[in-house]
Each structure stands twice: as C-alpha cells, then as structure tokens.
Nucleic acid binder design. Structure first.
Lengths: 202, 202
DNA sequence: CTCGGTGATGCCGTTATCTATATCACTTGC
DNA sequence: GCAAGTGATATAGATAACGGCATCACCGAG
C-alpha cells in the first residue's frame, strides 16, 4: 500500500465493510476500539484504507462486529451473496415485526392511560397503518423512525404524569412523520424488485 | 502473533485453507509463487501460520487460487457454508461426469483398435461398472484414479503401436485397482450422509 | 545413487503495521 | 455560548512483514 491517497472512490473496500458493520451496530470508532483493545486511530486508518492491516487485526475487528472472515470459491460467490442477502432480509423482517409489536403495545397502553390525547391517538393510528406494509414496500426504510418512536413512547410511559405534556409536540411530529412515510412508501414506483422473497438461489 | 510455535493443531487456519486450495489445483508452492510474484518462502510461512500476513498478501494469494475474501455475518455463516458445499458438490459432479465420458470414449476407441487385448477390455468393463455409482457412494474418492487412467489411455492411444506392449502391465494394474475401488465403495457403510443432494439450506 | 522437485528455514535490509498518546476540526445538544 | 462526542491525523518507538537469496532435508523417478 504505497499510495495513501490514491484510493478507488467507487470500489467497496474491506474498510468500508467494517465501517458499515460498525455503524449498523450504532457504535462509534471508540466503542469498537474498547471492544477490541485496539486504538481508535488504528480503526480510523483501517476504515479509510490508509493502512494494509494484518489478517489478525482484521479478524479481531470482524469478531467484535460478529463477522467472519471467509475464503469463498469464486464459483460459489454469487450463490453465497444471495444467501447472505436473503438471511439478512429475514432477520431484518424479524426485527421489524418484533419492534412493531412492542410499539403497538406501548402505544395502546399510552392511549388507554390518556384517551383524550389526540397526539397519542394519531401515533397509534399511524402505527396501525404501517403494520400491514409488506417488506418489499418498506425495503429497509422506516426502521430508524420506529426506533425513535420507541424512545419517545418509553419516555412518555416511564416519566411521571406531570412531565407528559412536554412530550406532546415530539409525539405529534413523529405521528406526522410516519404518516408521510407511509404515503411515500405506498406510492413508490410500483414494479420494484421484491428485494426479499422466500426464494432460494441457484 | 507472538508465539510462532504454539499453534493449535486441530483448528483449520487460513493457512490451511490456502494450502488445500493450492493442492486442489495441483500446484506447488513455487507454482503459486510464480503466479503471485511472491517468494515461495513467504507462502510456506503463511501456510504454516508462521507469520500473520497482511490483508493484501492474503488477497493476492486468494486471487491466484480463485478465492475471494469475504466478511460474512455470523448469523448467515451456516447457510453460507451449506451453499459453498453444495456448489462444490455440483461442480465436482460435473467434473466427474465429463472425465468419465472422456475415459469411456478413449477406452472404447482403444478396445476397437485392439479387440484382442484383455487388459483394455478389463479396463473398459471397470469403467462401465463405475459409471452408475451415485455421487453419494463415490463421495469425493475415485477422481484421482480416473485421472491417472486418463494419462494411461492417452499414452496408449498416442504412442506408436510398437510401444503398446509396454503399457500392458500398468493398464492391467489400473483395471484391477478400479475393480477393487468399486467393490469397496459399493460395500461402504450403508447409512452414510448423502454429502450432496439437491436440497437447499435454511 | 544421482537428480530434479518438493516444502521448510535462516539471514538481512527495507518498509510497514501497530500501540500509545495527543491533538485537530467538526457536529450535536444543553 | 460551552461541553461532549465524533472521526481524522501526527509523532515516536517497538515490532513484524516482506522481498531476495541461500540452504536444508526429504522423496520419488530414472
């Protein structure tokens, strides 16, 4: 790696994969550094392909990120990639269903406690509208918004009732955001690839 | 990698994978060295895990061996391994069928040229017996023997007729060897795992 | 037995990673 | 505004890979 600055901007390097995996876990470089007893500076250099790391270093990073270094025969590569995609889609779907179920429970509980608040009622109805959306329509979006709704509802339910009015505006905003999102997703270009089906490769 | 000599003897390291891939191609360390402009000494050290190579080094070796370095999510690992196994089994089966077809042609041609030679006749019948064996019964064996039969037949067919008696004993041996193999494989422990089926993981 | 090919090992000089530490510019939230 | 967290970058020293070259023991074929 003689050239530190001439990196291909389009290609997806190993560093990019590490970075994406780290971000998918919501970790900072320092978080990952703590879990690997490896300096944050080194992680930065690796993600930016400023260094050509040793295999043991890469393996240590991968292990912390629940990845495994594998040498795949080129002939099996497309099948393997399809397998990884399909596995990921399945686990994403499980995560969505689980989070959505929890949110529905929380929203219904909040609604029962404060039936007169229309921000809560609106949020609940937004969630009800979102639930039947197929994975193909969601296509990876939406998860982040749901997670912020989660912290929102959690705050509403756990803080003392006197604090509740403080949540009104954020909840109103979140409900509107979800309504907009649903509209956008439902009217997305129709013929898109499913991006996830119960098929199997080969 | 502070300890150069304390390597786990059971675990399959990256070096082992490189070595197996190289041997599967029938290459010596110097062959691989020539294709990677990398010293043979370095390859030896990597295969024996005497060094902790840089990622670029590993990638270069992998490229020459038609392997691809991949970071696989642990959750997808078993599915991916199944995919690789199944892909390999399929390509092995193709290779076997193709080689077997060529051998049948060659043996029949040789038999037609010299109908009185019973060594050739015996070899032909051995091949005919082997052909219907299922992949599960063969289970990876047999391929090496067929390849030596290939060079044998090729020699018999291309050298001048005067040289043909010289092949008699090797051909006789090969035919016997194949007969023994067939007997062994056909009487192998019955309930063995198929090792290859048209299934799909997950 | 000799010869060619195999893989393993040693040495050396160059270059690089890596650890440790500190600092930088930038963004986010209070 | 300040403070905290983010990722990128610098420096210095210890360690190690790497290329090049040489050599070694082993082994199967002629």
């Amino acid at each position: 790696m003689q050239n530190k600055k001439l990196k291909s901007p389009a290609m997806s390097t190993l560093g990019d994969i590490i970075r994406r995996a780290r971000q998918a876990k919501g970790w900072s470089q320092r978080d990952l550094s703590a879990r690997t007893h490896m300096p944050q500076a080194q992680i930065s250099r690796i993600e930016n392909a400023d260094v050509d790391p040793q295999v043991s270093t890469l393996i240590e990073l991968a292990r912390a990120l629940e990845l495994e270094l594998q040498l795949i025969p080129k002939s099996a590569l497309t099948a393997v990639e399809a397998t990884v995609r399909s596995t990921k889609a399945r686990s994403d779907e499980r995560a969505f269903q689980s989070l959505m179920a929890e949110l529905m429970r929380a929203a219904e509980q909040a609604h029962a406690m404060t039936p007169d608040r229309e921000d809560i009622a609106s949020l609940l109805s937004s969630l009800r509208d979102l639930q039947p959306l197929t994975p193909a329509l969601r296509a990876g979006a939406l998860m982040g918004d749901l997670m912020s709704v989660q912290t929102l509802l959690h705050g509403f339910l756990t803080y003392p009732p006197a604090e509740r009015p403080r949540h009104t505006q954020p909840i109103r905003d979140a409900a509107q955001r979800l309504k907009d999102l649903r509209k956008m997703l439902a009217h997305a270009p129709a013929g898109e690839r499913p991006a996830y089906s119960l098929d199997d490769e080969d």
